[in-house]
């Protein structure tokens, strides 16, 4: 069986930073496994500004940040299109690649699989099942990776930073959202975000407004809302469900109890830069532990 000092699962900001810091500290045999075709993680498709402050002390776009991370890690053994299927034993993994399935083991295994937004189904949102209902992350892939516009006038749901990332993505693609609605009392984002949305982009932001159902026959035609006990319909041709992050940690089902986790796979929702800082600190602990 292929054996290494450290295997890191996930080549996003956290995984790559762990690997790079380990190398700096003299741990030579480090492998990063990435299921996507390219390293870089979620920032790869966050085409707007705002990445890197904590780690690089300057702001850049997501793809630029991802590229910078990936090229700094170019001497590390990163295996893309490589999916970890499950833990087989305490320190070994069943891994899928184009050649088939094989087993790998390491002295330490680090889970850096990131986080994703909650799906419509997980939130039990009713109505018809239709295309044009998606999370921010998926919209970003349509817009920044595929150069496609999945709708023209969607409703954005959410009250987090990523909600405004959805707005920026729409702007980039020439999509004009009909509004930003949040079920919560308050926004969990800087105070000037909703002002910017309203005055710079003409998109109203409304809290205490709960999405009840999504309606349409073959496409989204309207959404139903509840506000102050009153239900109303608003016309739109898509729905962006932003935030309500869940760690992408299905692998935990088979992982040993002492598994090492870093980045947003921990269940946090930190910026990519913060994940880099935390991951570098974790790498120091792992390096010491290996000595």
């Amino acid at each position: 069986m292929e054996n290494h000092d450290v295997i890191i699962i996930g080549a996003g900001p956290a995984g790559l930073s762990t690997a790079m810091r380990l190398r700096e500290l003299g741990v030579k045999d480090v492998v990063v496994l990435e299921r996507e075709t390219k390293a870089g993680g979620v920032p790869r498709h966050c085409g707007h500004f705002g990445f890197g402050w904590e780690s690089h002390k300057r702001l850049m776009s997501g793809p630029k940040f991802a590229k910078r991370m990936a090229s700094a890690a170019n001497d590390i053994d990163i295996r893309t299109s490589t999916t970890v299927l499950e833990f087989t034993m305490r320190n070994s993994l069943r891994v899928h690649s184009s050649k088939g399935i094989s087993d790998m083991s390491a002295k330490r295994i680090v889970l850096a699989t990131g986080t994703r937004e909650s799906s419509r189904a997980a939130q039990l949102i009713g109505g018809n099942r239709l295309p044009g209902v998606m999370n921010t992350g998926t919209l970003q892939q349509y817009v920044y990776l595929k150069n496609q516009k999945p709708f023209s006038n969607p409703m954005i749901i959410g009250n987090e930073w990523v909600t405004f990332s959805a707005l920026l993505t729409c702007r980039h693609a020439g999509i004009k959202p009909v509004g930003i609605f949040a079920e919560e009392q308050k926004l969990d984002a800087p105070w000037f975000f909703p002002l910017g949305a309203k005055f710079a982009y003409g998109v109203p932001v409304q809290t205490k407004t709960k999405l009840i159902a999504i309606h349409g026959s073959t496409r989204v035609e309207a959404v139903q809302f509840e506000r102050n006990g009153q239900r109303n319909m608003i016309a739109c041709d898509g729905v962006i469900l932003s935030g309500k992050f869940k760690p992408e940690n299905a692998l935990l089902a088979t992982a040993p109890s002492n598994i090492i986790i870093t980045g947003n796979a921990l269940g946090t929702v930190h910026t990519a830069g913060a994940c880099v800082v935390n991951a570098r600190a974790l790498a120091e602990t792992i390096a010491k532990d290996l000595q």
Binding site: E36, E117, N135, G137, Y142, K146, P150
Partner: peptide, 14 residues
Amino acid sequence: GRCQGFYCGAEIAS
């Protein structure tokens, strides 16, 4: 699956 197309939705559609 569990992500309901979060990761692959855009790729599969294209």
